[in-house]
Design a protein around this nucleic acid. Sequence first.
DNA 1: CAATCTCCGACCTTTTCAGTCGGATATATC
DNA 2: GATATATCCGACTGAAAAGGTCGGAGATTG
Lengths: 148, 148
Amino acid sequence: MLKLTKKADYGLMAMKHLAEHGERGACSAKDVADAYGIPQEALAKILQRLVKAGLLHSQHGTNGGYTLARDPGKISAFEVIRAIDGPLFITSCVTVRGECDQSNRCSIREPLRRVSHGIEELLRGITILEMKEEAAEDGPAELVTIIG
Amino acid sequence: MLKLTKKADYGLMAMKHLAEHGERGACSAKDVADAYGIPQEALAKILQRLVKAGLLHSQHGTNGGYTLARDPGKISAFEVIRAIDGPLFITSCVTVRGECDQSNRCSIREPLRRVSHGIEELLRGITILEMKEEAAEDGPAELVTIIG
DNA sequence: CAATCTCCGACCTTTTCAGTCGGATATATC
DNA sequence: GATATATCCGACTGAAAAGGTCGGAGATTG
């Protein structure tokens, strides 16, 4: 539960990859896909959405590919995730209009809205540049494993 | 994306309901289901999981029902959600063992692990009691509507 | 101009979620 | 003690979303 989709994962990986290798020309979808073992077409579709969202620029033709539209320090993880998976809603009953099937009967929205807002802030606080540099130090670091 | 399942929503609603009405006896699954327009059987299955997780006590027979196993101030939203939807993983590639299909190639885990930890802390910081009291004051309050 | 390489949009398969139905077990009341 | 009520448990069905695949459109280079 509460997990990112693989698409969002792939998107973040691709953005980080472009931040690392993008300075000497564009990277094709195939390059990125091969580097991380992601199906080409699946990744291509994700990159398209990032282009539409204005986070990437695309270049057709031979030696074409994708480049970051902005400085990696100015692109947050939140933007990438939202561009791919859509808006972030912690509660499943809350829609874009703020409506709810149980409307006035459902009274758990307010507390969860705060959680949702907190998550958003967390994701806004992480930039592609940070992810790139954090990867560079490459601390294996203990993984928090939550046993269900 | 990143949204709770309806089951988790229902579970939180039920927990809050029990915190409000539970002091004068147990509430049956039907009572709660009718109060919020939730299908009985669907809710029953959710409540069973909460019983198994030790968050609720169940009483068979006539006038039976469910009661909170602990003080509502000592039950966090995180416990409820995890009992229903399972462990919380921000990245889809990270498993319980900390493994990953892309393993060493995927280097976005560390930053996202921090996010995951942050979300967990947020959810741990909200108790059923707080949700009950926040609902009592009943501020309509502006809803954050994120346009995708 | 033509061949090659790339992006682009629509389609299909698989998995997960949400809800349903049947029967079994335990308790309180009559 | 019989009956009505309520939880409990398994498996099943339908719907939605995720994940992945295919062929076509556009651009660049030789």
